[in-house]
Amino acid sequence: MPVRRGHVAPQNTFLDTIIRKFEGQSRKFIIANARVENCAVIYCNDGFCELCGYSRAEVMQRPCTCDFLHGPRTQRRAAAQIAQALLGAEERKVEIAFYRKDGSCFLCLVDVVPVKNEDGAVIMFILNFEVVMEKDMVGSPAHDTNHRGPPTSWLAPGRAKTFRLKLPALLALTARESSVRSGGAGGAGAPGAVVVDVDLTPAAPSSESLALDEVTAMDNHVAGLGPAEERRALVGPGSPPRSAPGQLPSPRAHSLNPDASGSSCSLARTRSRESCASVRRASSADDIEAMRAGVLPPPPRHASTGAMHPLRSGLLNSTSDSDLVRYRTISKIPQITLNFVDLKGDPFLASPTSDREIIAPKIKERTHNVTEKVTQVLSLGADVLPEYKLQAPRIHRWTILHYSPFKAVWDWLILLLVIYTAVFTPYSAAFLLKETEEGPPATECGYACQPLAVVDLIVDIMFIVDILINFRTTYVNANEEVVSHPGRIAVHYFKGWFLIDMVAAIPFDLLI
């Protein structure tokens, strides 16, 4: 008679799926529990143990900040960024110097990925580790590398530091407007667009060049630039800015003055950032001319202004700041037409079709709590990747769950009947059967004279019903998954307890 339990259901295979997918890609990662103190490590794979030199037993239950890997060259700011990422709910990448158990130093890129439950609360953290440099290539500990984003994938490793954006290309926007319009339909740009040429040739750093990471940081200074100062900065030398009595002219307006920039070969870094931020506020060169004239017309309804409409929906549905990093990277690809469009465009503009998908598509409701890094690593669709929660398995109709209350009560009843059979069957065979043979035949009273025979008949009927119930009862397979398919249940029961239950259900007393 089957006594099969499996009270692990309803099970959740999400954690096993993450481990299996990460292991298949030869990654070095740990999984931490966000619900406990210090976000203790609950799993670390073999790749991480080989990377740091510690065994799994030495890593388990330690804080996922990996303070046991810190050393003299470990930056405090990087460690603080990892700790801050564990307090938030967004994906974050941090470069930090770690030390192995043998004392060797290596520069590592740590990717902190939160995993949320159905309520939107962070319950786990996945920390992925990628070695960037070994100890002989690690720089000085005073050099802070965590304020910069990861290198873009479309640049060669040897040319990542030679990417320079020439400031004269930004200063000569109005001069290039006529050349853009003359391109017409034969050019790649839309009317009114501004073409910015980027020099990728390796050259020595000069005062006129600005690194790509500095251009990325310009967006942080746009908020500090007032509207009046932006307007004066875009007017140009024809209309000098008016300053109040006793007030000095704005240095932001002076930063885009061609006369002032041409007199000296070098520009201050602050002026460069502010000038680029001011130019980015204009949607095209037409807006710059309109600002000089004193009238700013409404933005025209053409394809170039609607190019950012799908980007707005993608940004609203993005799951991490990696989408913004990807957008900034692609927006700086050289030799393309940049349409400086305000994100607050007309909502009635139709979304044009684009061959290049900048932001990841909208994630469906079932995966809105899973970050983009987890979705990318697992390579699963929205119909396959579940949320991290207890999910009731989908069972067929008329199927009994093996952990249901009805099955528990039924098993206790069958257990009592088995005990009765084990006690009274030998007793009936030894004593009652002998008395029946010696006594007179009682054929007239039937079952009324033999109450134990009636009980034995009921017990046999219950055993037959138990066999039928076992054909529709779920079970737990070797992978700790609840199986509810009727065919698989029948095959599993035939290979197991079916023969024993059938022999126990045969009414031998009635056959004798």
Results as ranks from 00 to 15, higher is better:
residue 258 P to D: 13
residue 190 A to S: 05
residue 38 N to W: 01
residue 287 D to L: 12
residue 56 R to D: 01
residue 287 D to E: 14
residue 379 S to C: 05
residue 36 V to A: 14
residue 353 T to K: 13
residue 76 R to H: 15
residue 242 R to C: 14
residue 82 I to C: 01
residue 190 A to Y: 11
residue 382 A to I: 06
residue 124 M to R: 03
residue 165 L to M: 06
residue 104 S to F: 06
residue 117 N to G: 15
residue 114 P to Y: 01
residue 337 T to M: 14
residue 27 R to A: 14
residue 342 D to P: 05
residue 105 C to P: 15
residue 340 F to A: 14
residue 207 S to W: 15
residue 323 D to S: 08
residue 350 A to W: 06
residue 32 A to H: 01
residue 302 H to A: 08
residue 218 M to A: 15
residue 125 F to Y: 15
residue 53 G to Y: 01
residue 293 A to M: 15
residue 11 Q to S: 10
residue 113 V to D: 11
residue 263 S to A: 12
residue 219 D to R: 10
residue 169 A to S: 12
residue 3 V to L: 13
residue 100 R to N: 04
residue 137 M to I: 07
residue 16 D to H: 12
residue 186 G to D: 10
residue 34 A to F: 01
residue 307 A to K: 06
residue 110 V to L: 11
residue 54 Y to W: 07
residue 212 L to T: 14
residue 5 R to Y: 13
residue 57 A to H: 09
residue 352 P to M: 03
residue 58 E to R: 01
residue 264 S to N: 04
residue 119 D to C: 06
residue 365 E to Q: 13
residue 171 L to E: 12
residue 16 D to Y: 10
residue 38 N to C: 09
residue 194 V to E: 05
residue 96 I to D: 01
residue 92 R to K: 11
residue 204 A to N: 15
residue 238 G to I: 11
residue 300 P to L: 07
residue 21 K to S: 13
residue 226 G to E: 06
residue 38 N to F: 04
residue 3 V to K: 07
residue 113 V to G: 07
residue 334 P to Y: 01
residue 277 A to Q: 06
residue 372 E to L: 04
residue 249 P to S: 04
residue 163 F to A: 15
residue 359 I to E: 05
residue 65 T to V: 13
residue 376 Q to N: 14
residue 350 A to F: 10
residue 183 G to H: 10
residue 48 F to S: 01
residue 80 A to R: 13
residue 79 A to R: 10
residue 72 P to H: 05
residue 259 D to K: 15
residue 74 T to G: 01
residue 378 L to E: 01
residue 54 Y to V: 01
residue 190 A to K: 08
residue 180 V to Y: 15
residue 335 Q to A: 12
residue 181 R to T: 12
residue 155 L to D: 14
residue 17 T to R: 10
residue 381 G to D: 09
residue 42 I to W: 01
residue 239 S to E: 10
residue 367 T to P: 12
residue 197 D to P: 05
residue 218 M to S: 10
residue 336 I to K: 14
residue 318 S to P: 07
residue 41 V to H: 01
residue 256 L to P: 08
residue 300 P to S: 07
residue 82 I to P: 01
residue 188 A to F: 05
residue 188 A to G: 06
residue 203 A to N: 15
residue 42 I to T: 01
residue 105 C to M: 15
residue 177 E to G: 15
residue 108 C to S: 08
residue 364 K to S: 11
residue 35 R to K: 06
residue 239 S to H: 06
residue 312 R to S: 08
residue 251 P to V: 11
residue 104 S to H: 14
residue 195 V to W: 01
residue 7 H to G: 07
residue 63 P to D: 06
residue 378 L to N: 03
residue 152 T to W: 15
residue 273 R to A: 14
residue 153 S to K: 14
residue 339 N to V: 01
residue 213 D to S: 06
residue 288 I to Q: 04
residue 216 T to S: 14
residue 217 A to C: 15
residue 48 F to I: 01
residue 372 E to K: 10
residue 10 P to W: 15
residue 110 V to M: 03
residue 240 P to Q: 07
residue 360 A to K: 04
residue 277 A to W: 11
residue 285 A to M: 15
residue 346 D to H: 03
residue 165 L to T: 14
residue 170 L to Q: 12
residue 52 C to I: 15
residue 12 N to F: 07
residue 226 G to Q: 06
residue 379 S to P: 04
residue 99 Y to A: 01
residue 177 E to V: 03
residue 43 Y to E: 01
residue 96 I to E: 01
residue 339 N to Y: 01
residue 379 S to M: 14
residue 88 G to C: 11
residue 172 A to M: 01
residue 56 R to E: 03
residue 95 E to F: 05
residue 141 P to N: 14
residue 290 A to Y: 04
residue 47 G to N: 12
residue 68 F to D: 01
residue 318 S to R: 12
residue 29 F to Q: 01
residue 159 R to L: 14
residue 195 V to G: 05
residue 215 V to H: 05
residue 297 P to E: 08
residue 224 G to F: 15
residue 357 E to F: 13
residue 103 G to L: 08
residue 293 A to S: 15
residue 224 G to A: 14
residue 97 A to E: 14
residue 376 Q to E: 11
residue 192 G to Y: 03
residue 255 S to T: 09
residue 35 R to I: 08
residue 51 L to Q: 01
residue 318 S to V: 08
residue 138 V to K: 10
residue 146 N to W: 15
residue 371 T to L: 10
residue 62 R to F: 04
residue 348 F to Q: 14
residue 346 D to P: 14
residue 100 R to C: 01
residue 186 G to A: 12
residue 207 S to D: 05
residue 146 N to R: 13
residue 250 S to F: 15
residue 173 L to E: 14
residue 354 S to E: 09
residue 307 A to E: 13
residue 2 P to E: 04
residue 216 T to P: 10
residue 45 N to P: 01
residue 60 M to G: 01
residue 218 M to P: 15
residue 282 A to D: 07
residue 57 A to P: 09
residue 52 C to R: 01
residue 342 D to Y: 02
residue 192 G to A: 12
residue 343 L to R: 14
residue 151 P to M: 10
residue 149 G to C: 06
residue 26 S to Q: 12
residue 58 E to S: 04
residue 49 C to V: 14
residue 363 I to H: 15
residue 121 A to C: 10
residue 39 C to V: 07
residue 144 D to C: 09
residue 321 D to S: 14
residue 298 P to H: 03
residue 300 P to M: 14
residue 50 E to N: 12
residue 6 G to C: 11
residue 277 A to P: 07
residue 157 P to V: 07
residue 34 A to L: 01
residue 203 A to T: 04
residue 327 Y to W: 09
residue 27 R to S: 11
residue 141 P to H: 06
residue 361 P to C: 07
residue 104 S to G: 13
residue 56 R to I: 01
residue 61 Q to K: 07
residue 199 D to K: 01
residue 314 G to L: 07
residue 86 L to I: 15
residue 199 D to I: 01
residue 343 L to W: 12
residue 179 S to W: 01
residue 34 A to S: 13
residue 352 P to G: 07
residue 274 E to M: 13
residue 301 R to A: 12
residue 385 L to D: 04
residue 99 Y to V: 01
residue 146 N to E: 10
residue 45 N to V: 01
residue 225 L to T: 06
residue 126 I to R: 03
residue 106 F to R: 01
residue 74 T to H: 01
residue 222 V to N: 09
residue 338 L to I: 04
residue 291 M to K: 08
residue 301 R to L: 12
residue 318 S to M: 01
residue 87 L to Y: 14
residue 168 P to N: 05
residue 366 R to W: 08
residue 38 N to K: 15
residue 348 F to A: 14
residue 265 C to F: 07
residue 50 E to G: 09
residue 193 A to I: 01
residue 86 L to Y: 01
residue 20 R to D: 06
residue 10 P to R: 11
residue 174 T to L: 06
residue 202 P to R: 09
residue 106 F to M: 08
residue 262 G to I: 06
residue 175 A to D: 07
residue 306 G to S: 14
residue 179 S to D: 11
residue 327 Y to E: 12
residue 220 N to W: 06
residue 251 P to T: 09
residue 12 N to R: 14
residue 36 V to C: 15
residue 356 R to E: 15
residue 259 D to Q: 03
residue 381 G to R: 03
residue 347 P to V: 07
residue 107 L to S: 15
residue 288 I to H: 05
residue 334 P to V: 01
residue 313 S to M: 14
residue 26 S to K: 14
residue 143 H to E: 14
residue 358 I to Y: 11
residue 361 P to L: 05
